[in-house]
């Protein structure tokens, strides 16, 4: 009997080529969506968080925070209109970190092994996992935009379509950062550190809440920090796309950072090179 000629009644028709990869990709996305659908509280909290910012925070700042005309807007806009793209990116930031958390959880519980012993290349499996997380985040963002529409945040209709590629790219960037972080976190308990040292600084030190020119007015250093923060470029990519425009600098930064962090995550999860292999498994 050769390795290519199955003989037992248990043999199955496996495909290790591109057809098989499509099946594997579909399976990973399907599982992520299924888990998301079963975790209603996750969906609710993903939606409530930006809505609290929109309904309460933005309403309070509306009267005290004046915004002059800022690209891509062609006229003065209300603060809630300005802050909406930042909140879209915030949903994706939290989702990226949630995926990171679930990767660490899966590793601790052993569920990660199911993924990693698949015959497909590890870069492909991790990329599939990343795209599955992006798909979940895009659903969340559109649900948020639908609610925001009733709050008079009404971008052009084409903007809802044009923002899709921007959401995919920004979701990939934030997911790739989360994926890399998951390879460096040893225990689930350490996730609180991610909240303190990644999510909050990335969100607050960005253009999500205030334009960069306004940051510069109060602190040049803070402006420079915001300008170095990749999250700023995710926000701007979404903001411009939502109004039918392309911010090429934001696009370049988002794509570049995605490549760097996804590459680092694939390296970290590679058994022959990365960080995972250096730990004791039992």
């Amino acid at each position: 009997m050769s390795a290519e000629e199955p003989s037992t009644s248990l043999r199955a028709h496996r495909r290790l080529g591109w057809g098989g990869r499509v099946s594997a990709f579909r399976g990973v996305v399907w599982r992520e969506m299924l888990r998301f659908a079963k975790q209603r509280e996750r969906f609710v909290s993903a939606l409530v968080r930006p809505l609290v910012w929109l309904f309460i925070f933005a309403a309070g700042f509306r009267s005290v925070l004046g915004l002059s005309i800022t690209e891509p807007y062609e006229t003065y806009v209300l603060y809630e209109v300005y802050v909406t793209p930042g909140l879209c990116a915030m949903i994706q930031l939290f989702n990226g970190m949630q995926s990171s958390l679930s990767m660490v959880y899966d590793r601790e519980t052993g569920a990660m092994r199911t993924l990693l012993v698949s015959p497909f290349p590890r870069w492909f499996l991790l990329s599939s996992k990343l795209m599955a997380g992006v798909a979940v985040s895009v659903v969340q963002v559109y649900a948020f935009l639908a609610v925001a529409w009733f709050w008079d945040v009404e971008p052009p209709r084409m903007g809802y379509i044009m923002v899709l590629p921007a959401l995919i790219l920004s979701g990939m960037m934030l997911g790739a950062i989360g994926l890399f972080l998951s390879s460096t976190i040893r225990q689930l308990e350490n996730f609180a550190g991610i909240m303190n040292f990644v999510i909050f600084p990335m969100f607050f030190a960005s253009s999500a809440l205030y334009p960069l020119w306004r940051m510069a007015e109060s602190s040049v250093l803070l402006h420079d920090i915001c300008a170095l923060n990749p999250f700023t470029y995710a926000v701007e990519l979404i903001r411009f796309a939502l109004y039918g425009q392309l911010n090429t600098v934001a696009l370049a930064v988002v794509v570049g950072v995605t490549i760097v962090f996804l590459g680092a995550a694939i390296f970290a999860y590679d058994p022959s090179k990365g960080l995972i292999a250096k730990r004791r498994g039992g």
Binding site: A12, A24, V117
Partner: peptide
């Protein structure tokens, strides 16, 4: 492989776990 620690997704059904594994091995739905 059957690992020492439990690795099935407890929130999913038996069929959903099996289907996920089959997809990871390139099997059609």
């Amino acid at each position: 492989v059957v690992f020492q620690s439990r690795s099935l997704d407890r929130d999913l059904s038996v069929w959903q776990n099996l289907s996920y594994h089959a997809a990871l091995h390139g099997m059609s739905r």
